[in-house]
Simulated scan of single mutants.
Amino acid sequence: MNIYVSNLSFAVQDEDLRGFFAEYGEVTSAKVIMDKFTNRSRGFGFVEMADKEGAEKAIKELDGATVDGRAIKVNEARPKEDRPKKPAYSNNRW
């Protein structure tokens, strides 16, 4: 199951994210998303867990938990096609 984690402290790294979820089951991947220009955390990440039951328990127990002074938001990640589309940037100045 793929899990979306937001409102992360900018100090949280991949291994920290993995550690938050490891007690709930096997974490197959954990990735904090980095800004491609500044190489700083964007404050969110994704965790992939092998076991659906463990993932659901982690979501339930970690959603709203305080990590580095911030209340994190944890929920099941939605597939890319389910997200609302952003309008394309236009350079036209009409």
Rank of each mutant, 00 (worst) to 15 (best):
F20S: 00
F21I: 00
F21T: 02
Y24H: 07
G25C: 12
V27W: 11
T28N: 04
K31S: 13
V32K: 00
V32E: 04
V32C: 04
I33D: 04
M34D: 06
D35I: 06
F37V: 08
T38R: 09
T38K: 02
T38A: 09
N39Y: 13
R40C: 07
S41F: 11
S41V: 05
S41G: 02
R42G: 10
G43R: 01
G43K: 02
F44H: 03
G45R: 01
F46K: 06
V47Y: 03
M49D: 00
A50Q: 12
K52R: 14
K52H: 12
E53G: 11
E53V: 15
G54S: 06
G54F: 04
G54E: 01
A55K: 08
A55V: 10
E56L: 13
E56P: 08
E56K: 11
I59R: 01
K60W: 10
K60H: 15
K60L: 15
E61H: 12
E61T: 07
E61F: 09
L62R: 01
D63A: 08
D63P: 08
A65M: 05
T66D: 04
T66V: 10
V67C: 07
D68I: 06
D68S: 14
A71P: 05
A71I: 05
I72A: 01
K73Y: 13
V74Y: 02
N75H: 12
A77Q: 01
A77I: 01
R78G: 07
R78K: 14
E81A: 15
E81I: 13
E81V: 08
D82W: 14
D82A: 15
P84W: 03
K85Q: 08
K85R: 15
K85P: 04
K85L: 06
